[in-house]
Amino acid sequence: MAVKIIKRLLSYVLVLFGLSILIFVLVRIMPGDTARIALGARAPEYAVEALREEMHLKDPYPVQYIYWLRDMLRGDFGDSIITKRPVLQDIKSYLPATMELVVLSSIILVVFGIVLGVVSTKYASKWQDGLIRVLSYFGIVAPAFLWAVLVMLLFAYLIPVLPVSGRISTGMTPPPSVTGMYIIDYLLSGDPAGAWDAFQHIVMPSVVLSFAGLSQGARITRSSMIDNIKKPYADAERAYGIPERKILFKYLLKPSMNSTITTMAMDIAGIFGSAYLVEQIFGYPGLSSYGLSAMMNKDVFAVSAVIMIEGVIIILFNLISDLIIRALDPRVRLAEQ
């Protein structure tokens, strides 16, 4: 078990190394002169030249890459040319907001994805199943930013029950920072009203972000459960008088979870991608918003750092999903021994 995890971690290091090369190349081929953009059109040429020197922009690419990698391993991601602060500091202030969004939206995705999957299995070929099927096609087909606009129109404009943008209402003071996630921090500081306010702000973007994965999860759960419901053990469990609900949620769900968990892990990784536009639409000050403006401004170090960090997080989600599958399925767990 331990050996297995260490091996897996080593392979992840390789993945990250590959990712770093990819990011480096991609950022370098983005059009525009980094130093010129940083200093603005009116800066004198000698200043721009000095900055190029300082950022090692005149060295050959492999040398630049080594410098960048060395600094990153030391924990120095460089300075943002927009905010003029160390990128790491920016990330520290924006990442918790995005994590809060991603975590909440993952919870919605997992819970509703599975429940809807089980419900469509229970009512297979009935109208409930059909309704869920049609809704999930919508969820899969339409991109998150479209849902963002629609949901916003519906719940912030036509039926104004939810705040339209930001993390908290204007006039509220942010909670003392512990985790950086407002809902948790408000609760920790004993301010449930603040937590409720933060929740109201985050609910629309997180629901919107969960749609695609939720829909796919429901479909995958249904299809593996439908396969298993035909197995004799399901008949046997019914024949022995085990309650239907218990058969569905325990005895059929557990052996059907593998592909659900794998796809959900990928969908949760996909949430980071969708978050770039959704955070923008909801004016939500998270890492993706930050990353997007960094891209627009060719903020070399900021873009690289944001993508690297997200790479690490996505890999972690994958690892967690593997561990969950191992825990749930003895066939996977014991086959290795």
Partner: peptide, 22 residues
């Protein structure tokens, strides 16, 4: 009650008639 205590069924395929993950 009939299912729980009256009748029991043994199936053809002993591989598929026990739940694999319990």
């Amino acid at each position: 009650a009939l299912r729980a205590s009256g009748v029991s069924v043994i199936f053809q395929d002993p591989i598929a008639s026990l739940n694999p993950v319990f």
